[in-house]
Simulated assay, not measured.
Amino acid sequence: MTVPDAIADVALPEQQVGVVGHHAARASINAQLAAGRLPGAILLHGPQGIGKATLAFTLTREILTATGDEDAHRVDEQIAAGAHPNVQVLRRRPREGRGFYTVIRVEDVRELREELHMTRGRSGHRIAIVDAIDDCNPSAANALLKTLEEPPPETTFLLVSHRPRQLLPTIRSRCHNLALRPLADAEVSAVLQAQRPDIEPDELAQAVSLAGGRPRRAFEALGLGADSPLGALQAWLRAPAAHPAAAHLALADALAADRDSPDLSFAREILTDWVAGEARSAAVQTDRMRLASANELWEKADALFAETDALNLDMRQTLVTFLDAIRKHVHATSSPATQQ
């Protein structure tokens, strides 16, 4: 089974029986299923890597078991093998030769639509999973919208989105929207241990700390080297103003040593997550000055990294500039006691 962005030795979403977390969303759909009011389209949206696709396949199993004439075990087997005739999955397709297309194309959506209008292979509902709808190019998105406007009978679309605000408003309005959140650390730990039962405690703790509630990132963290500078970055962010002024220069040197390294990718997410957390904390505490400063910091990060990527600028200097901006933010918005 060929899937874009798959991680080696990690089970695909369709191969995982059950999902960790997202209890409220799952209960909501099951309640509508039991009442015979299943939506024609469900948009599962939230940060990438939190288990949205796994939830989509779990809901698919539950819908097919409830509406069809096969038991749960048989349904599980067919979905895991990609062989259930009532399930269609739309993802970026493999290119001839090597790799995958960068988008879901309009011809892919048309093929899906043709499949859904054929006679179903089993009794019960049909399910179409789009993972992820963000990958649709404009023509594909418009073709999918037409299908959502005139859906085949007894068919439910499960649309996975990491960036719902970038979708066509008309697509969002056709869907029952379920916003999903990152998992708790204990839930991320459970996901990792289920697939890596022999993982060492220290390795598990480090992966969970880097995941930010996203199991996918935790699995990616397991591939980092033992000398990764990310631990030093996390320690620095716990008290930016308490470290020597030159500490962030050494951090920038280490993180920017290899522009294509996973350490740098993780570092950028850790930094933006820190700023987002700072803004949330300021909002909860109704600290307007701190919130305004955090918002400015977010805009600075967005502009700095976007310009660096677009113009291939020096990543070290970008990191130095942004880490220095974090220090200034903390100095300006924290009391002397909190800077220790």
Rank of each mutant, 00 (worst) to 15 (best):
W274N: 10
E96Q: 12
D76L: 02
T156I: 09
F305V: 13
L44Q: 06
L204V: 06
L204R: 14
R105T: 04
G124F: 04
N30I: 09
G36K: 01
N30M: 15
S265R: 15
E296W: 02
L159E: 05
R327L: 07
N137T: 12
G51L: 11
G46Y: 07
T54C: 07
I326M: 14
E107G: 06
N142H: 11
A35T: 06
A301S: 11
A256T: 03
A306L: 07
N177C: 07
Q32G: 02
R216Q: 13
P151Y: 04
A184I: 04
G99L: 04
T119D: 03
R126P: 00
Q16F: 01
H84Y: 11
Q78A: 15
D135C: 11
L38E: 08
L264T: 02
R290D: 01
L271C: 11
D202Q: 15
L313D: 01
T308A: 13
R288F: 13
E114V: 07
D227A: 12
E296V: 01
V17Y: 04
I63P: 02
A239E: 10
E307N: 14
D9E: 14
R98A: 15
L204D: 08
D198P: 00
P152S: 02
A24P: 00
A292G: 14
D302S: 14
V103G: 02
T156K: 04
K146M: 04
P169G: 05
L222P: 01
A83G: 09
R92F: 02
D198C: 02
K146I: 00
L210T: 07
D263A: 13
L59E: 10
P197W: 02
D69P: 01
L251G: 08
R181Y: 15
S28K: 10
Q234Y: 07
Q193A: 08
I29Y: 06
D9F: 01
G46D: 07
R268A: 13
S173D: 02
G277F: 12
R288N: 13
A186K: 08
A267Q: 12
A245R: 14
E269G: 12
I42G: 02
R259Q: 10
P153M: 04
M1R: 13
L192Y: 06
S161M: 05
E154R: 14
G277K: 10
P201E: 03
A6T: 13
T67P: 05
P151S: 09
I199V: 11
A279S: 09
L180A: 06
A276F: 10
D71K: 07
M1E: 11
